[in-house]
Design a protein around this nucleic acid. Structure first.
Length: 433
DNA sequence: TATGCCGGGCG
DNA sequence: CGCCCGGCATA
């Protein structure tokens, strides 16, 4: 450490310990580079004269670059993030998203730990043949949708789509909160998308997230809350999870999959042989699905983790069971801005035991973004939420830009060519990223 | 370790 | 407000 100064001031000349008369001096002032050794051995040097000299041309340059500097952001962070969010959810149709993507768009690595293809689980696509059941599903779906969230996605498109897709709950709440019982979940269950699903339809644990795109729409939260009197404590987990809660008395077992809960009920409460896949559907009546939605997006402060939840490296690997691969009109509905949930966490609790529509959820989280919100194309949703959400990172410092900064470009030797900000150890103004 | 830059001090 | 630096976070 003692050599730090020395290193940073490569031009240390001879030793005049004159304390900075520099500002007044002119070109010839080299000799004035003071270098002195402090009692503890530190070198101190002053190079102000040089700064003065070079500043002149450095400035012109600065202006040039600055003028062009502001525009380079076209990729809308939020936009992109949404997309990546989708991908996490709807991994069935990754390509469907591409049209939306902007050409020059680069994916900030932190945000997209790429939806690794490995996580895409090919689903056999075995929809139940019974069209009849499908209708019911659809009906139920629509009803649920309408009743819980008035301004959800465009019902027309969503309903049909939803009904036709079997979705599995996705995402993770890595930290679970306890409502009142014992949260536990069955590791075996959740990692097996191809679980031999019980005959009944709900095996897929379908449910869909009602988008609460209006920030102030608490209606759905309320309405859902009164179904279940225990309000699920807000968590600051950004994701949403569907859990299945056993309704047997004194049993508050919560599992993450319907099959799990069914098996639990079967074995524990009905006393049947747990191993058999046999299910007469009776179990269905003994558990309820609870949807726990925690959305980071919410408010700046809610997002404490610097890393994007979407990406969340350590993220639990939940099987995302996407339905219909063959469907041709894929993720359109997905574009609907979703779940900019109210500041607080959202909890959807459903009492229905069986049919639910697919659940979609789009989280928009932007991290690592410019400090000036540059013009976005996605005005529609960008808005307060995104910007504020992006600000969520405020707690942490601005992620280091990838552009080379003055220091890198010019090197220490030419420190005087640096932009002032760099010289002052502030955020570089010249090479913004 | 080097780099970027925030937060804060000083004049 | 300009200038500078300690110290932290990150690559």
């Amino acid at each position: 450490m003692t050599s730090k100064r020395l290193l940073e001031q490569p031009r240390a000349g001879d030793s005049t310990r004159e304390p900075v008369t520099g500002k007044a001096m002119h070109e010839g002032a080299f000799r004035n580079f003071g270098k002195e050794i402090s009692p503890n051995g530190h070198y101190f040097t002053s190079t102000r004269e040089m700064h003065y000299i070079h500043k002149k041309f450095a400035c012109g340059r600065e202006e040039d670059e600055q003028s062009s500097g502001g525009v380079l952001k076209y990729g809308c962070t939020a936009h992109h993030l949404i997309l990546s969010g989708i991908r996490l959810q709807d991994q069935t149709h990754p390509e469907a998203l591409s049209p939306v993507r902007e050409p020059g768009h680069l994916l900030p690595s932190p945000v997209t730990p790429h939806p690794h293809a490995s996580s895409i689980i090919p689903v056999p696509h075995d929809r139940r043949p019974s069209g009849h059941a499908d209708k019911e599903v659809m009906a139920a779906t629509v009803l649920t949708t309408l009743s819980t969230s008035p301004l959800v996605l465009n019902p027309s498109s969503s309903a049909s789509d939803l009904a036709s897709k079997g979705w599995k709950e996705s995402l993770s709440a890595s930290y679970s909160s306890s409502t009142s019982g014992n949260w536990s979940w069955d590791a075996s269950d959740q990692s097996v998308p191809s679980t031999p699903s019980p005959p009944l339809s709900n095996d897929a644990g379908k449910s869909f997230l009602l988008s609460s795109q209006s920030d102030d729409n608490n209606e759905d939260t309320e309405s859902t809350h009164f179904l279940f009197e225990d309000p699920i404590p807000r968590k600051r987990k950004n994701s949403m999870k569907v859990m299945f809660k056993c309704l047997w008395k004194n049993c508050e077992k919560v599992l993450s999959t319907s099959s799990g809960i069914q098996r639990h009920i079967r074995t524990v409460h009905l006393g049947r042989n747990g191993d058999s896949d046999y299910s007469d559907g009776e179990e269905d009546f003994y558990y309820s699905e609870i949807e726990v939605n925690m959305d980071t997006l919410s408010e700046g402060l809610s997002n404490l983790t610097p890393t994007s939840p979407t990406t969340s490296g350590p993220a639990p690997v939940f099987p995302v069971l996407t339905g219909d691969v063959s469907r041709s009109e894929p993720a359109r509905m997905i574009h609907t801005p979703l779940s900019q949930s109210a500041p607080s966490a959202l909890c959807h609790i459903r009492t229905d035991h069986a049919y639910q529509g697919p659940m979609t959820q789009i989280r928009t989280v932007s991290i690592g973004e410019k400090r000036q919100p540059v013009n976005h194309t996605t005005v529609s949703k960008a808005h307060t939420n995104n910007t504020s959400a992006s600000k969520a990172t405020t707690g942490t410092r601005k992620p280091r830009g990838e552009a080379k900064k003055c220091r890198k470009v010019y090197g220490m030797e030419k420190r005087d060519l640096w932009c002032t900000a760099c010289r002052w150890k502030k955020a570089c103004q010249r090479f913004t990223d």
